[in-house]
Design a protein around this nucleic acid. Sequence first.
DNA 1: GATAAATATCAGGCTAAAATAAATAAAACA
DNA 2: TGTTTTATTTATTTTAGCCTGATATTTATC
Lengths: 220, 220
Amino acid sequence: MLSLSEENYIKAIYHLQTKDNKRVSTSQLSEYIRNKASSVTDMLKKLASKSLIEYKKYQGVRLSNTGERTALMIIRKHRLWEVFLVEKLDFNWDEVHEIAEQLEHIQSEKLVDRLDSFLNFPKRDPHGDPIPNKHGEIEVHNKTRLSDLQLNESGIFVGVVDSSASFLVYLDKQGIALGKSLSVKEKEAYDNSLLIEYDNKHLRITALTAQNLYIKLNER
Amino acid sequence: MLSLSEENYIKAIYHLQTKDNKRVSTSQLSEYIRNKASSVTDMLKKLASKSLIEYKKYQGVRLSNTGERTALMIIRKHRLWEVFLVEKLDFNWDEVHEIAEQLEHIQSEKLVDRLDSFLNFPKRDPHGDPIPNKHGEIEVHNKTRLSDLQLNESGIFVGVVDSSASFLVYLDKQGIALGKSLSVKEKEAYDNSLLIEYDNKHLRITALTAQNLYIKLNER
DNA sequence: GATAAATATCAGGCTAAAATAAATAAAACA
DNA sequence: TGTTTTATTTATTTTAGCCTGATATTTATC
């Protein structure tokens, strides 16, 4: 059984290695997890001794198969709990992350599977992120962002890149919710800001905002 | 914010002091929590310094008002999660304790209150134990046990004293469920065993079993 | 290819929560 | 009441997970 801290490292390594698909360095982890690099090295040795990661001194780490499976199971729990909080307990999508950070460490496979079934085997969490199934299989999701669209193209808003509460609150305020159709009406060459249309209204958004929205392109 | 370990001590002190209504000794706690007495002493000093308990050297401890409130909030969480597991996720009453032991440490008042409301403000957990409300008020429950009944008296089975999985499994096997009406048909003076009747069948039970069942007497 | 800068590791130390072992206080009893 | 037994506390050690500061390795730069 893994400690809380070990689980957090595994999850962090998963996120970092999935983002840019290469070995994760000590300093990346140190930054992400907000511990000193020396502490990270200590933990990496421990995880390597448990065969959860493949660790080469000075060369960074990569999750082993077991490590990856472990990470996926933690992510599965996190995201299922988020769905529970939003769908059953009426939390907003910007409130659930912290609570799910705690719930993801509860140990009971049966609990997770029952929860999954209680929620009707949801495919995605409230932020549009895919939920691994009980075999650790996870849908790879379309990486198109709103900022990638051409003028006059449109698509469905399916997920966020940045799921910080402040960003989610901003989206709520503007009425931008998962599943809405957004179309690009203007592109400002100067600062890459966009004028978008949805629900019959227009909104000007910054390049950063556009980069933080995942879009599923409408078939043409 | 309290550590996991601190919370477990607080809860243990609550249970012990409520059981026989007097100060809890180091050795009682040591036995209950399965730590060495010396470790218990260390923790008691710490809890006293946080004003959660009133600690007198060699005289045992008692929870302060804050301590008691803290205990009640942990118990509230534990019991609400048990209800959730049984009612919503179809767990059996003998499977939920361990999982609830973990869930009771999740920190979020909002979560607990939402859960309470989602479950329709249940009064008791699956073992018949009362659930404190959000103000820390808890119903004191009737302490009549099946072993206290006279010959030919009957009552409703409302709770268990011993909620170990093995006892609960035994009750399930015999079809003895919360809410059933049980009546005493014979009392064996020799070993205090009883012949009871419920659901139109008869069962012989030991004195120990009878002591472990809380009964609400039928009005006469 | 040598050297500076950036990264990573090692050695040693701190704290929380446990353990052991030794010392002391309280309770039991002769 | 004095002595023995039991309970409790104090002192010291261990382990996990973090830290700081010193050293080693890699990468970048001239």
